[in-house]
């Protein structure tokens, strides 16, 4: 799941290089409300998991998102 997720996230956020688990995603240059919406919608569509905003607020790294999906699948 992880490699696939990283590739899909890279495309979703229109990053030039592949995102890494340790990346602090809020520090991405193009992180904005649309990127947030895209990520939340993508996780909902792909994994059937809606991440509540307050839970999302606690996440800092890409790994945090992966862990949340794993723990809630």
């Amino acid at each position: 799941m992880e490699t696939n997720f990283l590739e899909q996230l890279t495309e979703l956020l229109e990053m030039e290089t592949t995102v890494k688990p340790a990346d602090k995603f809020r520090e991405y240059e193009n992180w904005d409300s649309l990127a947030y919406l895209s990520l939340i919608s993508f996780v909902d569509e792909e994994y059937g998991i809606v991440i509540p905003r307050d839970e999302f607020g606690k996440m800092n790294t890409v790994q945090d998102i992966i862990d949340y999906i794993k723990n809630n699948s």
Binding site: S41, R53, D54
Partner: peptide, 11 residues
């Protein structure tokens, strides 16, 4: 209620 905007108080 199942929409993204209903999942947390702020939204």
């Amino acid at each position: 209620q199942s929409a993204v905007y209903s999942q947390d108080e702020e939204s």
